[in-house]
Amino acid sequence: MEILMIITVGVLFSVSTYLILTKSLLRVILGIVLLSHGAHLLLLTMSGLKEGAPPLLGEGAESYADPLPQALILTAIVISFGVTAFLLVLAYRTYKEHKTDDLDQLRGNADE
């Protein structure tokens, strides 16, 4: 299972690298979103995909899964949710103001 997850993370990372290197604003955002997904999945995988009951008090099981990575990922997901929403609106406003979503044209020149 770990091998499969790691391959998935690798695919996510490579796809996101490709998308970030494109010129369109929206694709860059998608790339960034996929990158954070990859990072979250990596965190989950690296901290061990153990067998065990969900870490809830009511379960009364003998062994529990490690709850910490899940808490960390939940935090990270919430943060990336907020930031992505912000980034989308920012990209939309940039597009409105500059009338383009081509990053080549959003470069600006050296001496302004």
Binding site: I29, H40, P69, S80, L90, T94, E112
Partner: peptide, 29 residues
């Protein structure tokens, strides 16, 4: 100007944050 440059600022910082999580993942493991 602000809109154009802050998009890059935000994008780069999210990129760095993703790597922060990757670093935390390795260290925790």
């Amino acid at each position: 100007y602000q809109l154009r440059e802050s998009f890059k600022y935000v994008a780069i910082n999210i990129f760095a944050s993703a790597f922060f999580i990757v670093g935390v993942a390795y260290l925790y493991s």
